[in-house]
Write a protein that binds this DNA or RNA. Structure first.
Lengths: 189, 189
DNA sequence: ACCACTATTATTACCTGGTACTAATAGTAG
DNA sequence: CTACTATTAGTACCAGGTAATAATAGTGGT
């Protein structure tokens, strides 16, 4: 035997996970076994065939993209009082973090806070013009970040100041002050 | 003729665009023509076959996710002098912007700047601890944002201050001051 | 040495969703 | 009636599989 069965199957799992686009034939040459062996392995491990894997990636990714880009809010908004306060929760996943130490990247926490601040404004258009943020504790993969946003002032000049505080449990991990420009309804008429 | 050719091809384009997972057979019954006609249409319109379309969606989406998550740097880094300065370019795509007005979301520009600032630090670990940013002009879909980062000071306490200025053409669209904590090499030994 | 058993490989028939090519047919305009 | 376009049909072939059956290699126990 080149490599024990169990070992090969473990590697097979990893290999396919990180490159779902690989064919049985390529896997066979890679592990120096026959195609049939690869297929038996896939059956045992319940790994679907190439085309199904690709299809899965295509549909899955469609959801994923929206979590970080197309969605109005990054994270799940669980409470919203327009022009007053809002709360969202974001679970930190491996792709949100540095692979070396599993610490969430700063801009992920910023994105959660910023999108929450924007969603809070009850206007046709809201744009961030300024932000002052502090990352008070590093957040790790698996932790759930609860962001709480509240409007601290509605200025006369069409801007609002919003404070966002993010917590993991009792601990504050992020504080941000955002100034948001709003295309106030009165103005636009 | 059920429906003129041109008309059918227009609908075909739309149909496939909003559901790339449809087979020629399904399209044939849908448009009440033969499979061959659908294939001629696809050839004329240069639409690839089902499997290629799915594959395309799968890899495209993969890239998108990485725009905000897995990549080390958001945007393309085109210049890097460690601990000194760095430049990256990011083209604003529809998914980076509000759909209503095609204006880039604030956290996208922040992410570009933040990741560039982190990449700039020549240390095992770098984490943003504070940021002060201004969005001086709104950026639209299709524009290319050039972010220029430079270290303004290496403090004794293991922190560095980095300034990032982002431009679209000659116009400054974003200014940010980041304070980054570095796990200095000397310290870790 | 022999048997049992597992792992591996080979072979064959069949499937989907196509490509590539050739040929026949229908409809329409000049 | 002819030329031309649009459509349909049919055949051979391909990738990347499923499913099932059988043969072979290697290993452990007694």
């Amino acid at each position: 035997m080149r490599v024990p069965k169990k070992e090969r199957q473990q590697e097979l799992l990893q290999t396919i996970e990180q490159n779902p686009f690989i064919t049985d034939e390529a896997l066979a040459t890679r592990f120096r076994v026959s195609i049939q062996t690869i297929r038996l392995d896939r059956m045992e491990l319940k790994i679907p065939e190439l085309r199904e894997r690709i299809k899965h990636v295509a549909t899955e990714r469609l959801d994923d993209v929206r979590t970080l880009t197309e969605n109005e809010v990054i994270g799940d908004m669980i409470d919203l009082k327009l022009d007053t306060s809002a709360i969202s929760i974001l679970e930190i996943l491996p792709e949100h973090a540095f692979s070396r130490n599993a610490i969430a990247r700063g801009h992920i926490l910023f994105a959660q806070a910023n999108s929450l601040a924007i969603a809070l404004i009850d206007d046709e258009l809201a744009l961030t013009t300024r932000a002052n943020v502090q990352f008070t504790r590093s957040v790790h993969v698996g932790e759930r970040v609860v962001a709480k946003a509240f409007v601290s002032s509605h200025r006369q000049d069409g801007r609002s100041d919003i404070t966002v505080e993010s917590y993991v449990g009792e601990e504050c991990v992020f504080i941000g002050e955002f100034t948001v420009y709003r295309s106030s309804k009165e103005e636009s008429k």
